[in-house]
Write a protein that binds this DNA or RNA. Structure first.
Length: 248
DNA sequence: CGCATGGCCCTTA
DNA sequence: TTAAGGGCCATGC
């Protein structure tokens, strides 16, 4: 009907988007096995953007991101190992659209090793906002990539496991599967012990820090606060950095 | 020591 | 624009 080059150009666009364009706009998604059952995972050319458990994945994705979704043939490289080992490896994440606060929280949480836990208040201190403790909880409740950014490893200061996007029961199962001795954490908490120190190294740790777990019982000392441990002559562990603030 | 309570700060409706 | 409330925490009986 017309030979208008603009129209033919547009028609070509509609029929066959240029390579890469679609991936910038849309996300792909796959179903994969995870440690707590089947997961739906969405990813873009930037990396994994969303991890969802249970029903209603596409609805939840669209409500939250409002972008088109296309099924993918296979999971992105590195996703399955990351879910299996609890370590990201080279897997990239797409965290665009998060607030600065949320990104800072997630960056710290990301560094908590498998098999260990840290309190919400610790995350708040690490990002330099020691009183924004509840806001940290809110941010983790909105973690778009649970399991990959291990928000299940953030627990309450009083030794209680606390809430979780996929439910408190799932959080507890995950931690046990990763080797966290929750019974011991709870026993210590009952004695008001939230830090463990070694009188051979002079270092004080969070109880689940791998350094704390190797302390011989005879040389182990429990403390209620880092301040008390300091007064007793201990210095904070450089690995788990108890009571450390941003920069400190 | 278990529970209640005020405090805090970011996000959402 | 504002107000309400949440994956919490430290106190005070």
């Amino acid at each position: 009907m017309t030979q208008d080059p603009l129209l033919t150009g547009l028609a070509a666009l509609a029929a066959e988007p240029p390579e890469g364009l679609l991936d910038r706009i849309a996300a792909r998604w796959v179903r994969v096995p995870g440690p707590i059952g089947e997961l739906a995972v969405a990813y873009t050319d930037q990396g994994v953007a969303y991890v969802h458990a249970g029903e209603g994945f596409t609805e939840a994705y669209r409500e939250r991101f409002g972008r088109p979704l296309m099924p993918a043939a296979r999971p992105p490289a590195g996703l399955l190992p990351a879910l299996r080992t609890g370590r990201l490896g080279a897997l990239r994440l797409d965290l665009r659209g998060m607030s600065d606060f949320q990104r800072e929280v997630l960056e710290v949480v990301r560094t908590i090793p498998r098999g260990e836990v840290r309190p919400y208040a610790y995350i708040a201190s690490r990002i330099g906002r020691p009183t924004a403790v509840r806001a940290v909880g809110t941010a983790l409740g909105r973690n778009p990539v649970p399991l990959l950014i291990p928000c299940h490893r953030v627990t309450r200061s009083d030794g209680v496991v606390g809430e979780y996007v996929f439910g408190a029961a799932a959080k507890e199962r995950l931690l046990l599967a990763e080797g966290v001795d929750l019974d011991r954490v709870r026993t210590l908490a009952g004695e008001r012990v939230f830090y463990l120190a070694s009188d051979t190294t002079g270092v004080v740790c969070f109880p689940t820090c791998h350094n704390a777990r190797r302390i011989t019982p005879a040389h182990r000392h429990g403390f209620r606060s880092v301040a008390q441990a300091r007064d007793a002559g201990y210095r904070p562990c450089r690995t788990c950095r108890p009571a450390s603030q941003a920069g400190a």
